[in-house]
Design a protein around this nucleic acid. Structure first.
Length: 346
DNA sequence: AACTCGGGGTC
DNA sequence: GACCCAGAGTT
């Protein structure tokens, strides 16, 4: 049996039942693929079901507001995926008559659709002979064929893409592509895989040469930046507060948050009050209190956010304010959502 | 080619 | 704490 045949056999026996596995609807496959980028199946699945329920067809997604889409996406992370998802839905409806393109090349033109996703959609929905290369595939191929090129080097990316094409199964590309990813996720796992029960163990180079734990090779680590966030939670006499939308570059684009004072280190109360007086000189402050004594550390891939929420009661009204009750309807980062949760229970 | 973009799970 | 996850876009 060839490599791909072994993968197909393993997949037939071991595949999980997943909501998007019972369809070839490109809308649903596309949606699942975008959601699963850098995201585990268990984390993405509830969001997939929620989106299909709210937007059964691409037209439904296209006619929604970005705000609503971001709200549904809230908590899944990498929010550019949601913005691109929405833009692509509009494009598919507006320029492709509601039908997704059926080739790798055309799919690649869609926002948020890169090499992996274009390969996945074209193969799974349209039986195109395109090999997917995701994190699972890198691991499986590097181990089975004993390739120690860094998977995130230019040379490595090219090499693995070529290798993936050479060993793919064109007769059943749908199951093969999903099979090799599933195999990587379940059997050929990142840490301490059980090679004793692996159906490919006799021909696995990494196992024969005792290099399973060293493969795949990946360059460098991410360095983390520390930032200090002070969120000003205004509460007026009338029960109003202020939310601002994050614009420009950086994290959480287009999501909402309380007015933010960022600093180089943790702020004392007088320091925060000075910031308040310059930013909101017209508001009559009644009290300023920390919600959390110790900074809340919110960890992202490249940033650690040391965060203090300051509760600021004010007299009279606030400019450009909203009812505090209405905050929950805005798309917000998990950091804000968790604060709201705790604040509401106090 | 290197950086940036989230949040959560695992060891 | 380090690593990883059905990667893509920007600089």
């Amino acid at each position: 049996m060839t490599f791909s045949e072994r993968i197909l056999v393993w997949y037939k026996v071991n595949k999980r039942t997943l909501p998007w596995r019972s369809t070839r609807d490109p809308y649903k496959i596309w949606l699942s693929e975008i959601m699963l980028q850098q995201t585990r199946v268990v984390q993405g699945t509830p969001y997939y079901l929620k989106f299909i329920h709210n937007y059964p067809k691409v037209h439904d997604l296209a006619s929604a507001s970005e705000e609503e889409v971001l709200k549904l996406w809230q908590g899944l992370g990498y929010y550019s995926r949601a913005r691109n998802l929405h833009a692509t839905a509009k494009m598919v409806v507006g320029e492709y008559g509601g039908k997704f393109p059926d080739t790798y090349k055309e799919l690649l033109l869609l926002k948020g659709v890169g090499d992996y996703t274009a390969s996945a959609i074209s193969s799974i929905c349209f039986d195109r002979p395109e090999a997917v290369v995701d994190g699972n595939v890198y691991r499986v191929l590097s181990r089975y064929f004993g390739v120690d090129l860094p998977i995130n080097s230019t040379e490595g990316v090219k090499y693995f893409k070529k290798l993936a094409k050479e060993v793919m199964n064109v007769q059943n590309i749908r199951d093969y592509n999903q099979g090799i990813m599933e195999f990587g996720a379940i059997q050929c796992s990142p840490k301490s895989p059980d090679c004793n029960i692996c159906p490919l163990n006799e021909s696995c180079v990494a196992l024969q040469t005792n290099k399973v734990a060293e493969l795949p090779v990946k360059l460098k680590k991410t360095k983390v930046r520390n930032r200090y966030f002070n969120y000003v939670v205004f509460i007026s006499e009338r029960g109003e507060t202020i939310l601002e939308q994050r614009k420009g570059k950086g994290i959480w684009q287009n999501l909402w948050q309380f007015p933010l004072v960022e600093s180089d280190s943790e702020l004392s109360k007088p320091a925060l009050e000075r910031e308040l007086s310059t930013l909101y000189c017209n508001t009559e402050v009644v009290s300023v209190d920390k919600f959390n004594t110790d900074a809340i550390v919110h960890k992202l891939s490249h940033q650690h956010l040391y965060t203090t929420f300051w509760i600021v009661h004010t007299k009279g009204g606030l400019k450009e304010s909203i009812s505090f009750e209405d905050v929950e309807n805005y798309p917000v980062p998990v950091l804000i959502a968790e604060f709201l949760d705790r604040f509401g229970k106090k």
